[in-house]
Amino acid sequence: MLLSFLALTAIAITRMGDLFAVVMLSGIYSLLSASLFLDLDAVDVAFTEASVGAGISTLLFLATLKLVPRYEKKSRYKPALALGVVIVTGALLIYGTLDMPHFGDADAPVHQHVAPRYLNDSINEVGLPNVVTSVLASYRGYDTLGEVVVVFAAGIGVMSLLMVSQRTKARALTKVPADMQHQIILRIVAKMMLPLILIFALYVQFHGDYGPGGGFQAGVIFAAGIILYTMLFGLSLTQSVIKPVFVEMLTAFGVLLYSGVGIVCMILGGNYLDYDVLSHDPVHGQHLGILLIELGVGITVAAVMITLFFKFTWRTVKHKYNQ
């Protein structure tokens, strides 16, 4: 049922010419898919999709739309060829699904390999109730390190693509009007919500071992709080609260914290990212290690997201007020 909704939303996205509506619809699409993930028992994934897909992703698309034209040009081609390619691929894929194990089948090959070990032994080896967190941070710690490095690299890529010089910033800032000054209701409600959002982010960060949550989600929620503040109180005020250079340094600090934990493990005589040696008791060591690397993940993700938003906003300011 929900899946059909999703397909309908996706079809609506293809038909729209107004990119603003397309972006809003893709936000709705993300929210729908988050509720679907929840239905499929993937609470952590649903959490991430709701905060990333429906929150930050929509925001970044909107920030881009401020810089590029809003309407799509009508295509001059008949898309018959594309449609043909798509239908043929689809037919092949559907043919491929006929061999798949049925949905919800407990005997499917996916559930035979490592999953039983994670589910049965992780409580003794890692000692955390949330298996997703223990797999993410401990069993597959290398993977997660790789992902964090990718996020970091993407952040650096955007920074170098959308650089705005200090001189331009200073000159543009003198001309920027205080945009949201008259939005009293918005500002007051935001002031009320902001501390709660930030506390919630910290809760998600440190409660991720026991319930759904963790560094990725917490980082994104924290960034969303800061971005809300930026939108309502202006770029210059936010940047006097949080120095952009500081945020940029934090992106690297998170990755360093993560890999540093691995190196400390090696110095203490274990393997890279083997947290057992961090404390006298292996389970305590695992707790400490997971806490630290989740913190590293959270710091990097939050700092990268905040930096992305700053960069896009500076670009807009530059184009608007720097002729």
């Binding site: 209701i185 918005l186 409600v189 919500m193 709660l196």
Partner: peptide, 13 residues
């Protein structure tokens, strides 16, 4: 509490 605060504000905005 949150949904009452946020949704009314969003509508207003």
């Amino acid at each position: 509490v949150f949904s009452l605060l946020a949704s009314t504000t969003a509508c207003h905005a």
